[in-house]
């Protein structure tokens, strides 16, 4: 037994990498369909958007890059689907320099293709990317056109029907920031705290713990923590909208719900490794004490 534990402590970590690869890859080839339970912060976000009326404005900010797309893409697409299903007008922008604009454009193209009646410039608009997120957000409270003079195609805001009568972000009913890093915090501290616009955050799992402080302080309407939060949101959407239930069941594309199989399996394996590692460490220390 002691010999086996010693072997475990000196195990080449590449074997662990291989095991992780198998544990994550197998559920992709052979899906398990493990259940997902919803949490209060995700339900609060979902219910808030549900409470909005057709014609209201939701600002969806793509504040992440391709490096966290598997976590953030499903959140952003879920927000867009819910807004479009409820005929809420959507304003999209991007603040993360490396790739967020491309992701925003792709997600909009993907989701709007599911709703052929939507018209660009009337039901939704893509304002593109801006550098210096905190400073731009400061301007949005005064005049959106000062931060974003034109949309992503270069069309001045004054020529877009969706922007008619919409001067400040104060008139927007909700901001959904799908974020990695600090930009989500800017939305809370720069826009919510100083202007009062309600905020929902969809952070990466790595960033999620710090957003709990804002959630706990009542500065967020709701929050989707990482891939798990996105999977919860997909479940809530599927339960509320039968069309989306069919979509999430039949789509061949990647969804957070599909990703949760691999998450669950690998978390079980990691817990097992932590336990084994600790047992081996404690046993070795006990043996060393005995020897001394």
């Amino acid at each position: 037994m002691a010999g086996m534990l010693d072997k475990l402590l000196s195990l080449d970590r590449r074997w662990i990498f291989l095991l992780v690869l198998l544990c994550v890859g197998t559920p992709i080839v052979l899906p398990i369909g493990l259940p997902v339970t919803t949490t209060g912060s995700t339900r609060a976000a979902f219910d808030y958007i549900e409470s909005l009326k057709p014609g209201d404005y939701v600002w969806v900010s793509f504040d992440y890059g391709p490096s966290s797309a598997p976590e953030n893409d499903p959140m952003a697409e879920a927000f867009l689907r819910q807004c479009f299903a409820k005929k809420i007008r959507v304003i999209v922008c991007a603040f993360y320099p490396l790739g967020s604009l491309g992701l925003a454009t792709n997600s909009l193209a993907k989701v709007t293709a599911e709703y052929p009646n939507l018209r660009y410039g009337e039901d939704y608009v893509n304002l593109g990317y801006k550098d210096g997120a905190a400073a731009v957000m400061r301007r949005l409270g005064e005049d959106i056109a000062e931060g974003f003079p034109a949309d992503v195609n270069g069309t001045p805001l004054a020529q877009l029907p969706i922007m008619k009568g919409l001067r400040s972000i104060r008139q927007v009913q909700l901001v959904c920031s799908v974020a990695t890093g600090v930009i989500g915090e800017y939305w809370i501290t720069q826009v919510h705290s100083q202007i009062g616009t309600p905020i929902i955050i969809g952070p990466t799992a790595v960033a999620a713990p710090k957003y709990y402080a804002y959630l706990n302080a009542g500065q967020l309407v709701g929050m989707l923590g990482g891939m798990k939060g996105a999977a919860e949101y997909e479940k809530l959407l599927a339960a509320r909208y039968p069309d989306m239930a069919r979509f999430y069941q039949s789509t061949r594309g990647f969804t957070a719900t599909k990703g949760m199989d691999g998450q669950t399996v690998i978390h079980a394996v990691i817990i097992l490794f932590i336990l084994l590692g600790n047992v081996a460490y404690i046993s070795r220390r006990a043996a060393q004490k005995k020897g001394a």
Partner: peptide, 15 residues
């Protein structure tokens, strides 16, 4: 949360 985040990235790439 960090483990969940990193595994999510691996899931995305393997997908």
């Amino acid at each position: 949360f960090t483990v969940m985040g990193r595994v999510a990235l691996l899931i995305g790439r393997l997908n």
